[in-house]
């Protein structure tokens, strides 16, 4: 038996040799493509690549999590957390459409769009707003129906106190 020197024992272990081989293979391929990717405005491209991950993980995700928590707490204060879904679903759908089609909806490419395609750039904002109106309106209608059903249920099972958390 040979004892590993103190220094080596305090270093983290290497990990599975198979994993290390796969990792090396992956990094080699990524490197081969990466030097080609960065041939040009390398700083800008690196900024986009890493920035996309940071922007998503440290800005977008926390923002929508906080917004969601606020919605759930608002409904929670009224004692009906499970109804948060009626705001969540249309908000997620409408927000996603805005996120994906932001350049067209915001009109920031309107001039180029018109001159390149010969099409009118004017309808995108209106269509997104109408889709959002349908989503939120439809959800409101469903919520209304559900609340009516709850009320009827409650008056049927007379005077039972509402569930609280």
């Amino acid at each position: 038996m040979t004892r590993r020197p103190e220094l080596l024992r305090r270093l983290p272990p290497l990990g599975s040799p198979l994993h290390l081989l796969l990792l090396a293979c992956s990094f080699a391929l990524a490197g081969y493509a990466g030097v080609r990717l960065l041939d040009g405005d390398w700083f800008g491209i690196l900024l986009w690549f890493v920035g996309a991950a940071l922007l998503h993980d440290l800005v977008l995700l926390p923002l929508y999590s906080v917004a969601d928590r606020a919605v759930v707490q608002t409904f929670g204060a009224a004692g009906s957390r499970e109804l948060a879904v009626y705001v969540r679903v249309p908000a997620v759908l409408s927000g996603l459409l805005l996120l994906v089609w932001f350049p067209l909806i915001s009109g920031r490419v309107a001039d180029r769009y018109r001159s390149v395609t010969g099409l009118s750039p004017d309808g995108f904002l209106a269509r997104w707003l109408l889709i959002s109106a349908v989503l939120f309106g439809g959800s409101a209608l469903l919520l209304l129906l559900r609340l009516r059903r709850l009320r009827r249920l409650r008056s049927a099972t007379k005077q039972r106190p509402p569930a609280t958390h």
Binding site: L29, G40, G44, V109, R112
Partner: peptide, 19 residues
């Protein structure tokens, strides 16, 4: 969406980025 914000030509960025 014809929004060429990205730092360079689309073809090399999207192709090498994909690899």
């Amino acid at each position: 969406q014809l929004d060429y914000l990205f730092p360079g030509s689309f073809y090399p960025l999207h192709f090498y980025g994909a690899w």
